[in-house]
Nucleic acid binder design. Structure first.
Lengths: 155, 155
DNA sequence: CAGAGTTTTAGACAAAGTCTATTTGTCCAC
DNA sequence: GTGGACAAATAGACTTTGTCTAAAACTCTG
């Protein structure tokens, strides 16, 4: 089974983004077993334009900015589907909304508590050298590392 | 009003809990600049009975299990206050509710996606040997490391 | 191009959390 | 103790994020 993504990015040491692969969205969706409807392609186009963190709300607004294309239910259905298929990663940092990260390569996040900004940290910048033992009868499903930060008080 | 105690814990290398300090709740709250009202003391008693992760909802249910003592608004106000004062730690792992962790010593979490269970990992079991540079004009406010796990499929 | 299965839709619904105006409680001076 | 100023609690309306439902619209295959 093909596991290639619509776009795959990589960040270099300067934290710059490199486009790694680029292919037809509809074709790619189909390879993942996702019927490429108009709504799904549009949502994918928005998400995969660049590596970014968007909430369902923001995607809904963008996708319908030039006339109604997708309903709220479709946005949620599609994001859930993309997440299950590994196209996007759900980032849970804000107590009242989920962000969908179009960068699925291994990385972590800064979350600015004052501004709400979510920014990437390349995985290489965080070295975990010791891992805890998993509770009995469980398997790993992912690690989230969130560095919560605040604006400096000016002095 | 009963003289109940506020506990502080520490975990050793075997992941065992040690009671660290034990003092009158009202007195302790007052030292933190928190007026010890009946509601706040009751909520503190529930939270600090042992190290645990409770949602606002659960606390509301427990606190009012023997007659109405605190309203929903008070629960949220109090938990927010306790969090700002450093008495509890907000744990954001579940997209639709915040957990309040009565263990504020440095540690991380397993989050079982299948059962919703949240369990502690002693800080010593996770060694971070490389830290990213903070974005300009920000200061650290905490690190959350969440190991998402799943139940093994029986085979 | 017909029929079956999928997807989308509007809008009702649910749950977590916030807000507001009013009442109640706390604390300090006397 | 009592009065009064301020702090905290309350019920319930409200907001926001997300889910559900039943009907309509699509997509695909033969």
């Amino acid at each position: 089974m093909s596991k290639t993504l619509l776009y795959t990015w990589r960040m270099n040491e300067q934290n710059h983004i490199k486009i790694f692969t680029e292919r037809d969205i509809g074709e790619q969706l189909r390879e993942l077993g996702i019927t490429p409807t108009q709504q799904r392609v549009q949502i994918a186009e928005i998400l995969f334009a660049r590596p970014q963190h968007l909430s369902a709300d923001q995607i809904l607004a963008v996708v319908n900015s030039n006339g109604p294309i997708a309903s709220k239910a479709t946005i949620y259905n599609t994001l859930g589907l993309f997440a299950r298929k590994g196209l996007v990663r759900e980032v849970i940092v804000d107590p009242n909304k989920v962000f969908y990260d179009s960068n699925t390569s291994e990385h972590h996040h800064f979350y600015n508590l004052d501004t709400g900004d979510l920014t990437d940290i390349v995985a290489q910048d965080v070295m975990i050298t010791s891992l805890p033992e998993l509770p009995g009868n469980t398997q790993p499903a992912g690690i989230d590392i969130i560095f919560r930060i605040r604006e400096n008080d000016s002095e």
